[in-house]
Amino acid sequence: MTITIKGLTKSFDDTPVLRGIDLTVRDGELLALLGPSGSGKTTLLRIIAGLEWPDAGQLVVAGEDWLALSAQQRRIGFVFQHYALFPHMTVRDNIAFGLSVRPRAARPGNAEIAQTVDELLNLLQIEHLADRHPAQLSGGQRQRVALGRALAIRPSVLLLDEPFGALDAAIRRDLRRWLREVHEKTGSTTIFVTHDQEEAFELADRVVVMGDGEILQIGTADDLYDAPACPFVARFMGAVVELPVNISDGRATARGLDASALPVTSAPDGPGRLFLRPDSIALIPDPASPWQLSRKISTGADLRLTLLGPEGQEIPVDLPRRSAPPVEISQTYRLRPSVGALFSDDAAGAAATPIRLSA
């Protein structure tokens, strides 16, 4: 099912939550909505599910106007963070629930329901839990049952809202791999909400980064990491070195910065900011540079360095320990980045024009 969203807006008590969302989800795609709390991702998911209604905009699924349909008519599979299982029902009955409560004319026969449940128990690898109740299950097992209940109705679209947020890190990693396998077997168009970057990148075909009710960038993990579309995305991706620079003839210039490995851009002359990753910076000995090595720690695989620069600014630099050139505390070094993202400042001083820089 292809999902097309155009101009979607939503406010609560005059506070904008969604500010004109345009998004296309491809048939059979697993798409992640990634962003901090308050970015609007859960509200967007609930509108797709029919649990909230937009103030304006369009929501079309497989050519059909879903804003004209109730939640029940959309045949959505929804998995919540906290499972929402029926405690008095067994695992088997929980999975069968969506089928068994259909109107009589649309309800499958008992044999067909039992066959569907057996297939899902096998797919979810919980056959041995079929006759247990939710209280007898671990958190990870409960989340598998919740997904089974959502899949039982053969949903047109599967929606997951922070599905692993209540689980510990080790279980989340296992379930991410398992969910990706389930998605590939079922081929459902799937959207899931998360604030966990690792989760989004491991699971999704594409990631939608949201902030303050807007879509800021859509792409793969490599796209978002190497070419953030705006400073918000660069900072949200974490571990960023942010240098104030002057842009002259398409290059970033600053004391102690050697940008010769970066291509010339079309950025306008004037003040700007250069965003770098700690592992993309080489250090060149330079007694005239203001960047002084103040800390050096080995993790075994890497050297984690801290350099102190002009006006007390500290930046991290990561070098592979075995191949790194010798570096010494209190020595000064020129920064030579191999990849980064340059943003020119507008008149108000906010970074506005993204220029991708790559090796």
Rank of each mutant, 00 (worst) to 15 (best):
Glu314Arg: 12
Pro325Thr: 12
His82Arg: 10
Leu69Gly: 04
Ile281Ala: 00
Trp53Ile: 13
Gly219Thr: 14
Ser260Trp: 06
Ala352Met: 10
Phe275Gly: 02
Pro337Ala: 02
Thr299Trp: 05
Glu214Ser: 11
Ala259Tyr: 14
Arg176Ala: 04
Asp55Asn: 14
Gln72Asp: 10
Val339Gln: 15
Pro244Asn: 12
Gly77Tyr: 03
Ile76Met: 14
Arg304Phe: 03
Leu67Cys: 02
Thr24Asp: 09
Arg102Phe: 05
Leu147Lys: 01
Leu124Ala: 05
Pro263Leu: 01
Asn110Pro: 08
Ala282Cys: 02
Thr265His: 12
Gly63Pro: 04
Leu67Phe: 01
Ala352Asn: 08
Ile48Met: 15
Ala301Cys: 02
Ala96Asn: 06
Ser248Ala: 09
Leu147Arg: 01
Arg144Trp: 01
Ala288Tyr: 08
Glu162Pro: 10
Val245Gln: 09
Ala282Pro: 03
Ala254Trp: 10
Phe97Asn: 06
Leu147Pro: 01
Gly250Phe: 00
Pro290His: 02
Val157Trp: 09
Arg206Lys: 13
Pro87Trp: 10
Arg277Met: 00
Leu30Gln: 02
Ile218Asp: 02
His133Glu: 07
Arg356Gln: 13
Thr194Gln: 05
Arg173Ala: 08
Asp222Val: 13
Glu202Pro: 03
Val264Gln: 15
Glu119Trp: 10
Leu158Lys: 03
Gly256His: 09
Gln217Val: 07
Ile281Ser: 03
Arg173Val: 12
Leu8Thr: 06
Thr42Cys: 08
Ala169Thr: 09
Lys10Ile: 03
Leu99Asp: 05
Arg321Ala: 08
Val209Asp: 10
Ile3His: 01
Pro287Asn: 07
Asp302Ala: 04
Thr2Tyr: 05
Ala259Ser: 15
Leu18His: 06
Glu127Leu: 07
Glu199Pro: 02
Ala252Gln: 12
Ala359Arg: 11
Asp226Trp: 10
Leu123Phe: 01
Trp53Cys: 07
Glu314Gln: 15
Thr24Ala: 06
Glu311His: 04
Arg173Lys: 11
Ala96Pro: 07
Gln292Thr: 14
Ile171Gln: 09
Arg334Ser: 02
Trp291Glu: 00
Leu8Val: 15
Thr299Pro: 03
Ala351Lys: 00
Leu158Met: 07
Phe86Gln: 01
Asn122Gln: 14
Ile329Gln: 15
Arg356Thr: 12
Leu179Ser: 06
Leu274Ile: 14
Gln141Phe: 03
Thr194Ile: 00
Thr189Lys: 14
Ala130Thr: 08
Ile3Leu: 10
Arg142Ser: 06
Ile315Gly: 01
Asp222Gln: 13
Pro316Gly: 04
Asp345His: 10
Ala111Pro: 09
Pro263Met: 01
Thr299Phe: 02
Arg334Asp: 01
Asn94Trp: 12
Val241Asn: 15
Ala324Cys: 09
Asp345Cys: 15
Leu335Ser: 05
Asp269Glu: 11
Leu257Ser: 00
Gly98Asp: 03
Arg334Glu: 06
Gln292Met: 14
Ala229Leu: 02
Ala71Arg: 12
Glu242Phe: 09
Arg104His: 08
Arg142Asp: 11
Leu159Ser: 09
Leu123Gln: 07
Gly211Leu: 05
Thr2Pro: 01
Asp223Gln: 06
Thr42Phe: 10
Leu151Tyr: 11
Phe201Ala: 12
Ile171His: 05
Pro326Met: 07
Val61Ile: 10
Pro228Gly: 05
Met237Gly: 00
